[in-house]
């Protein structure tokens, strides 16, 4: 009996992620959604610059690697090429989506671009070795905030779902986490819905996923999952921030 099968949309190559990193879980959820909706053959994914840059090797669908932060603009081009047939998703970190690519994010949202965005918020720049991210929490110690993030000096974290929910444009915004079974189930549902929305032509759907970075948080994988509950979720409450079709 097979109890744990790799989703078909995931390629048969080992992930390069650190032990205990939840990027892998999120990849899996995206691939499961693609499998269940039977859209692999028409899907084009956009990989970011960040720890998940090699996402283009991990998914079996067609893939494009974008410049740092530009994935929503690249996705716009991919989608507009053939809006009826292309299913387009981006997979982006917090530095990518909420710092260098903020303009591309906000404008894709306000255009209600019919794409799906998987936004991995790990409150840190993982790939470059743990610098402060736009989503790093007040007081959080990082390589570039060695005394803890001081909002008086460098401002407050960006709450992406809350911010985008003020716009008329986007169809669907939800924040989920992947630090326990219950949260992973909810994340799975949200990610699938974000793809279904696109298939139904409803428009811009973004799922923010609170994710761990044990390596750069300086924690054991277990402690990192707990930190999501203790520190991140209180600052970034889970839930649906916008769902136009449900309103």
């Amino acid at each position: 009996m097979i109890v744990f099968e790799k989703p078909k949309a995931l390629a048969d190559v080992p992930f390069h992620y650190c032990p205990g990193c939840t990027h892998g879980i999120i990849h899996r959820l995206v691939a499961e959604a693609i499998d269940e909706l039977g859209i692999e053959g028409q899907t084009i994914g956009v990989a970011p610059v960040g720890c998940s840059v090699f996402a283009y090797n991990y998914f079996n669908c067609d893939m494009v690697e974008a410049a740092h932060g530009r994935a929503p603009a690249v996705a716009t081009g991919l989608k507009r090429s053939d809006p009826e047939n292309h299913i387009v998703f981006t997979y982006q970190g917090d530095g990518d989506l909420a710092s260098i690519g903020m303009a591309e994010t906000v404008h894709a949202a306000t255009r209600n671009e019919n794409i799906t965005i998987i936004f991995v918020n790990n409150a840190i720049y993982g790939m470059t070795g743990g610098q402060m991210a736009p989503t790093s929490l007040p007081g959080q110690v990082t390589q570039t905030s060695p005394y803890g993030r001081d909002p008086k000096h460098c401002g407050y974290p960006v709450k992406v779902c809350e911010m985008l929910s003020q716009l008329e444009g986007p169809e669907y915004l939800e924040r989920v986490a992947v630090n326990n079974i219950k949260n992973i189930r909810a994340a799975k549902k949200a990610i699938k819905k974000a793809f279904e929305n696109q298939i139904q032509g409803k428009g811009f759907s973004l799922v923010e996923v609170l994710s761990s970075c044990p390596t750069n948080w300086g924690m054991t994988p277990q402690k990192a999952l707990e930190w999501i509950d203790e520190a991140m979720i209180p600052y970034y409450p889970l839930g649906v921030y916008k769902d136009r079709s449900a309103e």
Binding site: V46, R70, A73, G77
Partner: peptide, 18 residues
């Protein structure tokens, strides 16, 4: 009409990819 030249060239990048 893109939000900037940065976005415009990246839309071009996406479209050209197809």
């Amino acid at each position: 009409q893109a939000e900037s030249e940065v976005a415009a060239i990246n839309m071009v990048y996406g479209l050209a990819s197809t």
